[in-house]
Design a protein around this nucleic acid. Structure first.
Lengths: 284, 284
DNA sequence: AGATGGGGAATCCCCTAGA
DNA sequence: AGATGGGGAATCCCCTAGA
């Protein structure tokens, strides 16, 4: 399986070799790659990769929105067997096809040929489609072909489809990250104003989640409105109150950025809550 | 004269009518426009506007980098006279010509015709030129033509050139602005860490200037490195010490963002310096 | 000289709001 | 229905750094 987040799709103009798509279990020092294995078979086989939409992976798309880029052999297939039937794709790139060039490639549908279907109207259609499709999420589709008696790879097996891959450059799928905060502690009563610097977020699809890992799973959310999100890169918010105002000593909790829609979140930061004395914050 | 900053150049694809270039003395409720007047003459005349480079306004450029857009009459000239010789241009737009289309328009120089001067090499040249020219700064060039005895406007006067106009969308010429700070006071000794949210800045060409308007003109600069500039939209810095550590009561000074190269600055924000007690900050 | 990222500029698209 | 901005997405360009 490929890693779902953190990989950036590239445009053709950016050139090749910005690194290949890593596997889900890939790490800094031990890179892995998307890999498929043909089971219950001995012999030669060929495995091909294609990119498909994440919502409807088995439908064939009329337009090519992406291209796979295999820097090693220029094509997107590998031959395996006869003993090891494992195909590993170590240098898969995902190329964005621009809306402009996608509309170039389009064939005119027959039933509209009598209309004046201009370049720009096709382009517009491409954009409409892009809106409902989310071109920033793809899946890999692997199709294996077994060798037939003539030596040709004609016996196609049922394709398998990977999990979804999100373009890390896309604003709704980029890696969430908290870079810096002006305070890392506040009072148990909440209401402390915090300036938080972060990687790109979308002001209507972001929340700041405070939580405790153990015991019952307390969670609460930072208080801010979309206008408190500054240019997608900073958030000014107020801390929420802790579940209990009566604590004897400081309590350490966590906070993280979290997308409302996709549900993915950033690495957490620690935050320390101090007791308040008679409802008033104590200096700390 | 046109207003130098705050006007955004547009691309053709953005469509017309995003507002005309205002005059230097233009205000919210009393808009003015770039205007020229022909002196010492009575009679009909025609005034034409062109865009020229800011460094070399009277040289003719080989390539058109910009286009003027006059939404009112489609052309960039107005006729005036015989009594009022004032030409006012109330709806001047400045259109960016993309590097791609600029390279399309280029004629091949004769002496390189035997070389294989491809489209892409012209494009590359356009980009090189763009680097040294700064296409985000232009001037208006007004040329007046007096009516000759046949009624034609043939008698050209010496052109006049306006001050420079900076594209407000360009990162090195956009309006500087401080949106928010997490503190507006600190101690006279400096060293207080401030989170400041701002409009787009460039991390290597920005400074935070503290100053006092009256008496001697004290100034000092916030302490930060380029890595403290977060994604062009926030700066974490430490306040500088005041010129005197011995103050009895709080002193209010100003701070502003300032570009090192261009020297332009943002509107100031107030900042209050509190006395320190025996070298230690006093709680405030 | 390619494997490996990442920041940010140039270009483009589309929103809001009031009469 | 145009005068009037402005935010941010999609596309593109080019940097750094280590062997």
């Amino acid at each position: 399986e490929p890693k779902q987040r953190g990989f950036r799709f590239r445009y053709e103009c950016e050139g090749p070799s910005h690194g290949g798509l890593p596997g889900a279990s890939s790490e800094k020092n031990r890179r892995t790659y998307p890999t498929v294995k043909i089971s219950n078979y001995v012999g030669h086989a060929r495995v091909e990769v294609q990119l498909v939409t994440h919502t409807d992976p088995l439908a064939s798309t009329r337009t090519a929105w992406w291209a796979v880029h295999c820097t090693e052999n220029g094509t997107c297939m590998v031959d395996v067997g006869p003993n090891d039937l494992t195909a590993s794709f170590s240098n898969l790139g995902i190329l964005h096809v621009t809306k402009k060039s996608a509309s170039h490639d389009r064939r005119q549908p027959i039933n509209t040929q009598h209309l004046r279907s201009t370049e720009s109207s096709i382009l517009k259609e491409a954009k409409e489609l892009g809106k409902v499709m989310d071109l920033n999420i793809v899946r890999l589709k692997f199709t294996a072909y077994l060798q037939d008696s003539n030596g040709g790879f004609t016996r196609a097996l049922k394709p398998v489809v990977s999990n979804a891959i999100y373009d890390s450059k896309s604003p709704n799928a980029s890696n969430l990250k908290i870079s810096r905060m002006d305070k890392t502690c506040g009072t148990v009563l909440g209401g402390d104003e915090i300036f938080l610097l972060c990687d790109k977020v979308q002001k209507d699809d972001i929340e700041i989640r405070f939580y405790e890992e153990d015991e019952g799973g307390w969670e609460a959310f930072g208080d801010f409105s979309p206008t408190d999100v500054h240019k997608q890169y900073a958030i000014v918010f107020k801390t929420p109150p802790y579940h209990s105002a009566e604590i004897e000593r400081p309590v350490t909790v966590f906070l993280q950025l979290k997308r409302k829609k996709a549900g993915d979140s950033s690495d957490p930061k620690q935050f320390t809550l101090h007791p308040s004395v008679q409802g008033k914050p104590r200096p700390f």
